[in-house]
Computed example of a mutant assay.
Amino acid sequence: MSGYTTEERGAPNSLEYRLYIKDSSGKPVSAMHDIPMKSAAGDGVYNMVVEVPRWSNAKIEIDLKSGLNPLKQDVKKGKLRYVANVFPHHGYIWNYGAIPQTWEDPNHVDGNTGCKGDADPIDVCEIGQKIHARGSVVQVKVLGVFAMIDEGETDWKVMAIDVNDPLAENLNDIHDVEKVMPGFLAATVEWFKCYKMPDGKPANKFAFEDKPKDREFAENIISGCHDSWAKLMAGETPADGIVLSNTGLGNGSSIDQAAAQAIIDQNPALGETQPLPDDVNKWHYVSLK
Results as ranks from 00 to 15, higher is better:
Tyr20Thr: 02
Ala147Glu: 14
His33Asp: 09
Asn85Arg: 11
Val138Phe: 15
Leu185Pro: 01
Lys196Ser: 01
Ala269Ser: 09
Glu151Ala: 15
Val137Arg: 00
Ser287Trp: 14
Lys193Trp: 09
Gly250His: 06
Ser66Ile: 04
Val49Lys: 00
Trp156Val: 02
Ile242Pro: 01
Asn251Val: 02
Thr237Ser: 06
Pro53Ser: 06
Ile174Phe: 10
Val180Met: 14
Ile35Arg: 00
Cys225Gln: 07
Glu126Leu: 10
Gly248Met: 14
Ser66Asp: 07
Phe217Ala: 09
Tyr46Asn: 00
Ile62Val: 15
Met159Lys: 04
Val177Arg: 05
Leu19Gly: 03
Asp74Cys: 10
Cys194Gln: 15
Val145Asn: 08
Glu8Gly: 12
Glu169Trp: 12
Pro53Phe: 06
Gly252Cys: 03
Ala31Gln: 05
Asn164Trp: 12
Cys225Ala: 15
His132Asn: 09
Ser25Trp: 13
Ile222Cys: 05
Val86Trp: 15
Ile264Glu: 07
Glu209Asn: 14
Gly10Ile: 00
Pro198Trp: 15
Ile221His: 03
Leu288Asp: 10
Gly117Tyr: 13
Leu19Pro: 01
Asp23Glu: 07
Ala133Phe: 13
Val189Ile: 13
Met197Val: 06
Cys194Ser: 13
Ile93Thr: 05
Asp162Thr: 03
Lys157Ala: 09
Ala147Gln: 14
Ala58Leu: 07
Lys27Gly: 04
Gly128Ala: 08
Ala258Asp: 13
Ala269Leu: 14
Gly271Ile: 02
Leu288Val: 06
Ala160Met: 11
Val142Lys: 02
Ser254Phe: 03
Pro275Arg: 08
Pro53Tyr: 04
Met159Asn: 03
Lys205Asn: 06
Asp118Gln: 11
Ile60Ala: 04
Ala262Arg: 01
Leu270Asp: 02
Gly241Cys: 12
Gly135Ser: 10
Val145Ala: 12
Ile149Tyr: 08
Glu8Gln: 13
Ile35Cys: 05
Val158Lys: 02
Ala168Tyr: 13
Thr188Lys: 08
Ile21His: 01
Asn164Glu: 15
His33Glu: 05
Gly224Phe: 14
Val52Asp: 04
Gly78Pro: 07
Gly91Met: 13
Gly67Leu: 05
Glu153Ser: 10
Lys79Glu: 02
Pro166Phe: 14
Pro166Glu: 10
Asp23Pro: 00
Ile62Pro: 03
Ala262Gly: 03
Asp176Trp: 10
Gly3Thr: 10
Ala133Tyr: 08
Tyr4Arg: 00
Gly114Lys: 13
Thr188Asp: 01
Asp165Ile: 06
Met1Leu: 06
Glu272Phe: 07
